[in-house]
Simulated scan of single mutants.
Amino acid sequence: MDHDPDDEGTAQYASPACFLHELQPGFDARGVHADPVAWADVARWRKAERARLIEMRLAIPAEIRAEMAAKIVEGLDAEIGDVGGKTISVYWPFRGEPDLRPWMASVVERGGRAALPVVIEKAHPLVFRAYRPGDRLEKGVWNIPIPADGESVIPDVVISPLVGVDPANYRLGYGGGFFDRTLAALPKKPLVIGVGYDTQRIATIYPQPHDIPMDRIVTASTPA
């Protein structure tokens, strides 16, 4: 199900509304720290929250995750519209993330172009390699498959899996900083859509000056 990130009344937050008592003072109303020393406390909190959210995601049975992925696909089609002629970066699922590989294949079938993100070097932006189902793959970072021969492309749409997300569309990722570096380095701004489960919606990630919010969020709730 696709939630309006501005409609806080419908979001189900997994975390208490405020963790500021656990952090050093000096945060503004958005959660951005004014005191650089406080970043160490934010990083420590993010690490613990990341572990909690990933554990919760992995606890969802595979068949339930598949049902939710189908709902997410419906939301993506509604957000993107006609994929013909568009280059869309998806991802290879990792640690309980929604499996969008069938949808990625459908993008190609409908006249779009698919791509996968590739880590080239630590602390550097990702690159996007063109990919069609059946293309040769090789193991990348964390043994995640990546295109072995695909040419580098600039996506029109980037689909980004979430570890957590707050009402301002700030994404909690795996902590490598690749997402923000990549968006900052691209020559043109793509439409960025975060995907995940409703249980990954949290009150805040304590966004920092380097964090870049996503444009839209598509999540799905656990079937009743």
Results as ranks from 00 to 15, higher is better:
A114K: 01
P61V: 01
C18Q: 13
A38M: 07
D211N: 02
H21C: 11
R46Y: 05
A130T: 00
A17C: 13
R216C: 01
P5I: 05
G176F: 09
V192P: 04
L58E: 14
E63G: 02
A11H: 11
D198P: 01
L183I: 13
R201F: 06
L126M: 07
D77Y: 14
L186S: 06
P117N: 03
I64C: 12
A51R: 09
Y91I: 12
A123S: 10
L53C: 06
Q24D: 04
I64P: 02
D156N: 11
S89G: 14
V119S: 05
G9N: 14
A224K: 07
D156F: 03
I154Q: 10
E109D: 08
I154R: 06
A14S: 14
A168K: 15
R113G: 14
P25K: 08
G164V: 01
I54R: 00
C18S: 14
M104A: 15
T199E: 10
G81N: 06
G194H: 04
V153P: 05
V165C: 12
P209R: 13
R216M: 03
P93K: 01
R181L: 07
E55K: 12
G177M: 00
A184E: 10
L172G: 07
R136L: 15
A78I: 06
I64R: 12
P213I: 10
R201P: 00
K189Y: 09
P147V: 02
P102G: 05
G196V: 02
E109N: 02
R132S: 09
P145A: 12
H210K: 02
I80R: 14
V218F: 10
W45N: 13
V73N: 08
R50W: 06
D35I: 12
M68E: 12
G176W: 08
V73H: 08
P190A: 02
A78T: 09
P155R: 08
L58C: 13
Q200V: 00
L58R: 13
P213F: 04
D77S: 13
E55R: 09
R132N: 03
D149P: 11
D149C: 13
S152Q: 14
V37K: 11
